[in-house]
Design a protein around this nucleic acid. Structure first.
Lengths: 253, 253
DNA sequence: CGGTGTCTTGAATACCATCAAGTCTTGTGG
DNA sequence: CCACAAGACTTGATGGTATTCAAGACACCG
């Protein structure tokens, strides 16, 4: 079994200076380009933003629920999760954050988030200043457009998750989670095809916390998928072997 | 057992002309006052908006998923639900809409909703024109403020529901749903105290569809609450008899 | 006055959780 | 570099929560 080297993310974290935004694979994808005036960037100026770049190792908390902050973070590289903890230790993951994602559009208007953000892989992110971003928003129709798109998608994904949790079985939920992640990664050019393969740094407990199951049950369902020849997961990489069948499970109803 | 007359809402629906917004109990509560320029209203002008008032009888659909529309509806009176239907007939209620609620802040930016809206009681609502509302938004800091608040609350409630569906038992979910509705009604001055009582037009199948259970199980849990002396439900009215205990169930973790 | 919608209750069943033991991998300090 | 601990995953046995199925009571409406 070929053990692949540590993921690309980890290399970057060890660099002294983060790469400029111009080199970012998702600079055009999210709000970054449209919002760059909020980084006090002049058109044509090299993309070097002092002090707004951060790195966080895997499993560390980026920020905590109810923490006040002026910073509005955008994920540059790596995977993160926004989570809610209950007093008995159980956890719910509200959404996974991928490169280019604004952590939460609500953070634009409220300094207090209602969830924590946790790094899954090593994560690199940058932050906007809320006041500056808001000011830019009112002068920049393109940014407003991008943000409203982000808002609509954020809400739509939350609504989808509600339907999944309320009305679908474990198999359906897992299939839908993986296919959603596949679609989002594909938009970022992060999915290989033939065979359909992608980086998959999630532990089974992440999946469990995201779709309201126990890690044990997630393991059992994934084993089924594996034995049925639908999926292959190894070395933090996931391959969809039987896409048609997998899709049928996800869209069962 | 005293059978109360049909709820106030029904009376209003039978009127020929809807009451002016000035008479609305929640005119100041939601976005209506701040957004009134989008109704082409001059300050001091009597609140009479031609053509923007609608009434819908209970159980009728206000608008359907994926329907395109320029209208951004606000509930004036009555209860509604935003719902998603699955192909096998099961249904998920994403949220209940109360007087003063914008149906969805996402409708401000996208003409296509990802859920349907259904009247629970007879409902009276008015609509803004999206383009006009958007234009007003950019010239009116107060409106932006109100909308961002609505947006944050909408998302926060969706996130809460995700946690409830993913990580809580039937008892907790039902208690939390009822207490959330109580809080929202209280903000609107629609809850009596001593004893704590409110209009409660939901059928048990509404509750079931909202929190991912079956009507049968909802019935069993509500019966428990009733026999334990915690709740009383009759004549579409709900009384919380043992608030402390009920709250403890809702906040169990 | 039958039809429809709502609610209740009981019995049988399905799905997922919990508990437990064991394997394998990963990370860490001696 | 090895030993050990911690984390991640698997698998089986058992149990609990909620679903499904079914039958009946009741209210409301046309």
């Amino acid at each position: 079994m070929n053990v692949r080297p540590r993921p690309v993310v980890a290399e970057l974290v060890t660099r002294q200076t983060p790469p400029p935004c111009a080199a970012c694979a998702v600079y055009d994808f999210g709000i970054c380009r449209a919002a760059s005036p909020a980084w006090a960037l002049q058109p044509g100026e090299p993309f070097e933003f002092q002090g707004s770049g951060h790195t966080v190792p895997a499993r560390r908390v980026v920020f905590r629920e109810h923490e006040m902050t002026e910073a509005v973070p955008v994920i540059c590289e790596g995977w993160a999760a926004s989570t809610v903890m209950l007093s008995d230790g159980t956890r719910q993951i509200l959404s996974f954050l991928l490169p280019g994602d604004l952590v939460s559009t609500a953070l634009l208007f409220d300094a207090k988030a209602n969830c924590s953000v946790e790094a899954i892989t090593d994560v690199r992110y940058r932050t906007f200043n809320r006041a500056e971003l808001k000011a830019t928003l009112l002068k920049n129709a393109d940014l407003l457009e991008r943000l409203s798109k982000a808002w609509i998608e954020e809400k739509s994904r939350a609504d989808q998750l509600i339907v999944d949790l309320g009305r679908r079985t474990a198999e359906e939920r897992i299939a839908r989670l993986i296919l959603n992640l596949k679609d989002r990664l594909a938009l970022r050019g992060m999915v290989r095809s033939e065979p359909m393969e992608m980086d998959f740094p999630l532990r089974q407990h992440h999946i469990a916390d995201a779709i309201g199951l126990t890690p044990v049950h997630v393991s059992k369902v994934l084993s089924e998928f594996r034995h049925a020849g639908i999926l292959r997961i190894s070395d933090r990489s996931l391959t969809i072997l039987d896409f048609a069948r997998f899709r049928r499970i996800a869209l069962m109803r």
